[in-house]
Design a protein around this nucleic acid. Sequence first.
RNA 1: GCUCCCAUCGUCUAGAGGCCUAGGACUCCGGCCUUUCACGCCGGCAACGGGGGUUCGAGUCCCCCUGGGAGCGCCA
Length: 482
Amino acid sequence: MSKQVRTRFAPSPTGYLHVGGLRTALFNYLYARHHGGSFVLRIEDTDQTRYVEGATEQLIESLKWAGLSYDEGPDVGGDYGPYVQSQRLGIYREHAEKLLASGDAYYCFCTPEELEAMRERQISRGEQPMYDGTCRSLTTEEVQKKLDEGIPHVIRLKMPREGETVVEDVIRGTVRFQNELVDDQILIKSDGFPTYHLANVVDDHLMEITHVIRGEEWLQSVPKHLQLYKAFGWEPPVMAHIPLLLNPDRSKLSKRQGDVSVEDYREKGYLPQALVNFVALLGWNPGTDEEFFTLEELVQQFSLERVHKAGAVFDINKLNWMNGHYIRQLSEDELVSFLTPFLEKAGADVSDAEKTRKIILAVYKKIERGIDVYDAASIFYKETLEVVEKEAVEILTQETTCTVLRNFLQKLDTVDTLSMDNFKELMKTVQQETGIKGPALWKPMRVALTGMVSGPELPAVIEIFGKEKVSRFIRQMVEEYC
RNA sequence: GCUCCCAUCGUCUAGAGGCCUAGGACUCCGGCCUUUCACGCCGGCAACGGGGGUUCGAGUCCCCCUGGGAGCGCCA
């Protein structure tokens, strides 16, 4: 019987949750849930210079919004805590000392300036920039003397100078690295904090993580990690490096070229189920033509074996389509509660709940994101009418248009109020009396009322407008164009 | 520059040697439905980067080239 599966998502709290991070979290979540294991959230805040107020809370909020629940984490606890690395400093120190004692790590007193100069020299010579090992040869006495003098220092990993490290990656297969080309990675910084590499390995081991699923950008540092596992005498977890999310120009997905934070998408009116579904399909697919999945279905079908190797462009266009699909899937009540805030934020008066509801139901099929709703509904919030579309003007200047509009105006006098039903009746009468039907009948009405050739279903527009507005707009059009 | 990864329509992808006349989805373009507009449905455009092998047979295996990406921090 193999071990209980345990995966983790280990973000650095430097801002918001990146969509690439969301996908990494999702794959970890899906893998753990699929195997009945545990999913852990661990905060990797070992860089004091990058501390961002409230970032952890934001991360947790975004994860919660996406529906990715974790079994252990800073806010829910667990048997392997604490789950925030800045609260585990003693543990890293202790482990670094073990490495020092066993000879797998060494003190380094080189200054940042010296290292910078070294790097420049190497680059100018066309070499791979890496630490030259100066402090490796320091004697115990020399080291002790410098420590006693209080000279700032770091602790470095002593990578073997020969041989190779072989990585068995679930997604990439066998990858080999020449040890001599792997740098003596800093494990403990001069401020006493561990670097990612040390903290990550120590925590994954102590937290009994069985599968490390993370972005491909980490593949290159796996030999360092494997060397650490070896030095500690630990069994490394299964590795799975998933392909990167790309900008349209195929560079690594970044800000500058569009929205990258989950929060951005949430604010623009993307639904969590759409974003999750979309992102799951970037680099993974079930091998069928299915493309819509609930989180539960993803859990059932997910496997690392079906994850791709190549990077995937984050195609906002397809996300929009998928989000539109999920919006159309919403119940009427869900539509109203989801979209009303977007109308309000855009400046619409939503105090009349019944009217707002009608407006939302009239336009929801035409939008792809929450933020689109105001534009789609704008005709309902204007008290004046102005025709600018070329095609709209053409329709208004057709001969039959005036006949239709004048006739409709007459019929309008016969009713007190307008509803979807009696409007259709009126239109039928207009058709019979004028002999004009189809597009020639309806399009002039649409343009005369909305100023545009495309928009919500007309009967719905009429009912929401009410008789006064309908009458006023059509009279105006007759005056201007007939 | 060095190291590593990757390579099917514009994009996401199916394809684990014959089932491929290369399938699906988004976008775009037609059409149908609708007395209007959407939604929906149907159809169309569009790809195996190049060259060598291996094999009776290669999108599928191997090699080279080309192209793209990532990494090379006292950042994660």
